[in-house]
Each structure stands twice: as C-alpha cells, then as structure tokens.
C-alpha cells in the first residue's frame, strides 16, 4: 500500500476550479517535487492535503496510509502524520514557541496513545532539533513567529517538522524569500529528516531548492493538471527552458482532446 494516493482530485476555490483531476501516488521514503508556474494549483494541492477547509473538493479521493484523508479535520490529518511547512508561516502573538510546539507534540502523542511529555522531557529533544536548524534558543521563548525574519520563520517550520516527525511532509514554497545561506540551512534540515518511513512533497516554483533537496520524482503542474512527470533531470530542463514550452504543449494537448 502506498503512503499517499491521490485519485482524480478536483478542487474548487470560491466556485473556481483550480485542480482538474490530479492523480499522484507516493510511497514512503520518496521525495516528490511539484513544480509549476504561478497559479497552476501547486499551493492548492498542499492546502488540500493539510485539510484547509476553504478548499472544496468536488471529485476524487485521497488515501493516506489507506485512510480517507478528505474525511479528516486538519488536526486529525496532523495526528495521522501529515505536516505542511507553510509558505507564509503565521505570527501568533501571546503564544510562546516552545509551549506551542510541546502542545502540538503532546496532542499528536495523545492521539497515538503515547504519554504526554512534560517540559523536562521535552527540552532535550527540542534543543537537539534546534541545533539541526542552527536556531537561537532565545527565539523559542518568544511568541510564535512574531518578529521573526523570513528565514527564521522558514527554519521554524522545519524545526516543527523535526519535532513532530510526520510521515508525510509537504514543503510549500519553503524556498521563497530565502537567501542562499538560509536555503542551505533549511535544506540541510530537510535532508536530515529524509527517512525510509517518511515521504516528502516539495512544492516549488524554482529549481534552485532542488539542487539541495534532490527529489526522486518531479511533477509539473500546469492549469490544475500534472502534465509531465520525470526524474530530477526534468527540473533542470525547466530551469533552462522555463515553463513556456510546457504550457504550450499542455494547451495543444487540451485543444486536441477537445
């Protein structure tokens, strides 16, 4: 059984069809990259997988570990092992980072029938993960993402992933707005978390991130459909040729079948 099976997924936002039939199967241990021009539906796919409620699924199904993902609330999906690193991490004044992360970890542990961790048990784990992301411990006593730089926010996302240890991690344009140093740190963190039991979906517009996080598969999303799939070399081809040719090709296919 595959970890994630997406079958004929159609999604609307505000009455507008964004995803027009996505089929995608991902096995544990694999890293898939979803690339595509702006507005192609990449982020929509990420949001649907993390169960954002404002996205309406009109057709199709998603099985996660054999379970119906579309029947899950966001917190249930998270407890089952889905994690999305946000493109725009949210600032939450008044809730401490460390406190938030421990609450999240304990919510997941509780769901899985494990004992909750108190602060004493949590801190060593937390410190170790902080080191992986080269983050200052002081940031952890501050409110969630409040006053963080763009790079710090993205590192904080990967830190959360490192603590919560999901089965499926979705990185939604984690590279956007990062300078090369921050990108390296983030990529290093992500690579350290690659594991045979874990799958990742790396959503990105640019190929740059894929120099650091080398995917097993690359899928190109155009106008709500996966128009091409291949290995890492496909990303390089897109990098040198841009998205124009593949969009033209997709349009021709669409008109020929019409």
């Amino acid at each position: 059984m595959s970890l994630l099976e997406i079958r004929n997924l159609h999604v609307q936002v505000g009455g507008h069809e964004i995803l027009k039939g996505i089929d995608l199967t991902i096995d544990a241990g694999e890293v898939h990259s979803i690339m595509g021009p702006n507005g192609s539906g990449k982020s929509t796919l990420a949001q649907v997988l993390s169960r954002r409620e404002s996205y309406e699924v009109t057709e199709g199904e998603i099985l996660f570990d054999g379970k119906d993902l579309l029947a899950m609330k966001p917190e249930e999906a998270a407890c089952e092992g889905v994690f999305m690193a946000f493109q725009y991490p949210v600032e939450i004044p008044g809730i401490g980072n460390a406190y938030f992360l421990r609450s999240a970890l304990n919510a997941i542990r509780k769901y899985r029938g494990l004992d909750e961790l108190d602060a004493v048990d949590f801190i060593p784990l937390f410190r170790e993960r902080l080191k992986l992301l080269e983050m200052d411990e002081k940031l952890m006593n501050r409110s969630v993402n409040e006053g963080f730089s763009g790079g710090e926010k993205k590192r904080n996302e990967i830190l959360q992933m490192a603590v919560l240890e999901p089965k499926l991690a979705i990185l939604d344009e984690t590279d956007s707005g990062l300078d090369i140093d921050a990108l390296r740190i983030v990529a290093h963190g992500v690579n350290a978390l690659r594991a045979p039991s874990r799958a990742m979906i790396v959503v990105t517009h640019y190929q740059r991130l894929l120099d650091y996080i080398v995917p097993d598969f690359v899928h190109v999303l155009v106008d709500g459909r996966i128009v091409r799939s291949g290995g890492p070399e496909l990303a390089l081809e897109l990098e040198s040729k841009g998205y124009g040719w593949i969009e033209d090709e997709a349009r021709q296919v669409a008109s020929a079948s019409a």
Partner: peptide
C-alpha cells in the same frame, strides 16, 4: 492562526482556547 495551530495537531477547541489565552494573557 486557528488553522496554523490545528495543522500541527491541536484540536479546534484547544486552538481557540490557546488564542483566547494569548489575547487575555496580554
């Protein structure tokens, strides 16, 4: 903010409580 908390496994009621606690904690 609510979605962010929930996407990390925190239940909706608990997420609301945390956000209210933050607002009142101020």
């Amino acid at each position: 903010a609510l979605f962010y908390l929930r996407s990390r496994g925190i239940s909706e009621a608990e997420a609301r409580r945390l956000l209210l606690e933050a607002f009142t904690g101020e």
